[in-house]
Nucleic acid binder design. Structure first.
Length: 583
DNA sequence: GCCGTTTTCGGCCCGACTGTTTTCAGTCG
């Protein structure tokens, strides 16, 4: 059982207990434990075996026992019993906006409703509105929610959400009376996907801004409008995709803005820690102030708030309560890598395989972005669907690279390949041909259905090959579409560290693996990370920025990322690795 | 369910908005 599986089980227990009407502090303990497990570094089974589980703050005797049962047996009778006692439809009903555990439980107790279908029928017949605590508006809202959940009740990738957020923000900034305005929430923390947009504005007069906001052309529906907070559904076409998201706008006084900015940036878990920190110092922190009955600490920006709580400024990407508070106390927060640190890229495609631009076009586009090197990583021969290169074409490409390099100025093409890791873990070219590349990206593109043990062994075998420089997209996931293949990344990282291999952050916004939680782990193990756009066109080279965001969420500094090095340094290191592979 | 130099019991972050209410519970973030 993976950490994610265990976390899912604990989350489910928390949710089911909520539906039973349990004390929220108890249910929160489960949700909190789920988060802790997910972000735990190292091997969970090993921790369980060593009896180290209860040492984690937030996991006590009861949770340690349940987690141990889950990890060692693969299931948990306590969860099975809970599931059996609560209809699965109730959990689905929780996804409807405006319906929480209390209302879902009431609907079940009063009207025996245990599915969205039954709920819809009961609303349409007017039964729901007759119940105590419910009314006509709630009934309508539920029906709207059932329709809404099909359209927008889902998460959206950051590359699609960001343009919509920025479109709204730009218009809001032109409203009269707006002093400061920013996108907050998970978008500001640069999560891979977001569920909604949080927009914060400071102004002396909120009402006109509220009124103007709901009239923005992108606004499809107004969900709610109060004196300082409005919620809408907004939509925009981004690269041909219709993006629809809920957007919440909050307006505060300008003196309150830093507190609100911090508050609405989250994460919730980070905020709870910060609040606790304020309480420890005899103060109360909320979205308006850091104060108590006798005094209020003025803060002109977020840095002042952190300083008032004896912390250095913490970048939004780190605010997940995964150690940033503790690192801040010790003055050990990383100086995060930035877009401007990236000097080149390694994993890209040209017209030789499934790219849309020539070698020279790609190299010139890379130069335009300020890169010193452009690494070609076209597909290898067995990936015929992507026109993988047979060995004779590889040699032809090398000759062209030499010709183009001879006339290029200020950018150099590096001879690489994205070599398939075959079913048995061997590589898709002969050792002789592999020796001719300046570097090799090894990736899995086939047989996704293997067991975890098989896939782990396959990738680990490839990583032990001396010709391999780095591992390409580590899990093969497609965000919001397809789970990655089953693989034990803890084991893969161990093998990568042992053989001195690098691991890629694939910057395609639809992929973004290695996931940031493992990026952090890889850094701790001393594994160099490479940020690759996996560009199939000149325009896609710019996607590297989404990889930088993952790197930042994974606490990486410039020194942790291989492609922040200049051309001379990179060529020297690649040559050194070829001379002395660690096997 | 967790946690403890105020502790092994009694706390556990906090405010806006909505709808169904005559003062507040539930939901949401």
């Amino acid at each position: 059982m993976t950490k994610d599986d265990v976390a899912d089980a604990l989350d489910e227990i928390g949710t089911l207990l909520e539906l039973k009407g349990e004390n929220t502090f108890r249910t929160n303990a489960y949700h909190n434990a789920a988060r802790l497990i997910q972000q735990l570094p190292g091997d969970l089974a090993q921790m369980v075996a060593d009896g180290k589980l209860a040492e984690v703050r937030g996991i006590g005797e009861a949770l340690a026992l349940k987690i141990t049962t889950l990890v060692t047996t693969g299931n948990l009778p306590y969860l099975e019993d809970l599931r059996a006692s609560i209809p699965a439809g109730l959990v689905k009903m929780l996804r409807l906006p405006g319906l929480g555990p209390k209302k879902v439980k009431a609907l079940h107790d009063l009207l025996n409703i245990d599915s969205i279908e039954k709920l819809k029928a009961a609303c349409e017949s007017g039964e729901v509105a007759k119940q105590k605590g419910f009314g006509a508006k709630t009934q309508t809202r539920i029906l709207e929610g059932i329709a809404y959940i099909d359209q927008v009740g889902h998460r959206v990738r950051i590359d699609l959400a960001l343009p919509l957020g920025q479109a709204l923000l730009e218009q809001i900034r032109t409203f009269p009376g707006v002093i400061r305005a920013e996108l907050c929430g998970s978008l500001r923390r640069r999560k891979e996907t977001v569920a909604d947009l949080d927009i914060l504005v400071s102004s002396a007069n909120a009402q006109p801004i509220m009124d103007a906001f709901v009239k923005i052309p992108e606004v499809i529906q107004v969900l709610g409008q109060g004196p300082t907070k409005s919620s809408v559904v907004a939509g925009l076409h981004v690269h041909g995709t219709k993006v629809t998201l809920q957007a919440d706008l909050r307006v505060v006084e300008d003196t309150q803005y830093p507190f609100a900015l911090h508050y609405f940036t989250g994460s919730k878990e980070h905020n709870i820690r910060m609040r606790q920190r304020a309480i420890d110092r005899g103060l109360s922190l909320n979205e308006y102030a850091l104060a108590n009955e006798t005094r209020s600490v003025p803060c002109k920006d977020e840095a002042d708030i952190f300083a008032a709580l004896d912390l250095p400024y913490i970048q939004p990407e780190l605010r997940e309560d995964t150690g940033e508070i503790e690192a801040g106390e010790l003055k050990k927060l990383p100086a995060l890598v930035a877009d401007s640190d990236i000097r080149g890229v390694f994993h890209n495609h040209t017209t030789y395989s499934d790219g849309t631009a020539s070698l020279e076009e790609m190299a010139l586009a890379a130069k335009k972005l300020g890169f010193e090197y452009f690494g070609v990583g076209d597909h290898s021969q067995s990936l015929t669907i992507a026109r993988g290169l047979p060995s004779n074409v590889v040699r032809k490409q090398w000759a062209e690279i030499d010709r183009v390099n001879a006339k290029l100025d200020g950018v150099r093409i590096l001879k690489g390949s994205e070599v398939d890791i075959l079913e048995d873990g061997s590589l898709d070219y002969t050792d002789e041909l592999l020796a001719g590349f300046e570097y090799v990206v090894a990736s899995v593109h086939s047989h996704f259905g293997m067991t975890e043990a098989e896939m782990t062994a396959r990738v680990c075998k490839a990583l032990s090959h001396p010709a391999v420089t780095m591992l390409g997209h580590a899990t093969g996931r497609l965000l919001l579409k397809r789970e990655g293949y089953k693989i034990n990344l803890d084991e893969v990282l161990k093998v990568a560290a042992k053989h001195g291999k690098m691991i890629e952050i694939n910057a395609q916004p639809s992929r973004l693996d290695l996931d940031w939680k493992y990026v952090k782990q890889a850094k701790a193990m001393g594994i160099p990370i490479v940020i690759n756009p996996d560009a199939h066109s000149t325009g896609e080279l710019a996607l590297y920025t989404f990889g930088v965001q993952v790197a930042r969420r994974g606490w990486l500094t410039k020194d942790d990322v291989f492609n922040t090095r200049g051309l001379a340094d990179v060529m020297k290191e690649l040559a050194r690795r070829k001379q002395n592979p660690i096997v």
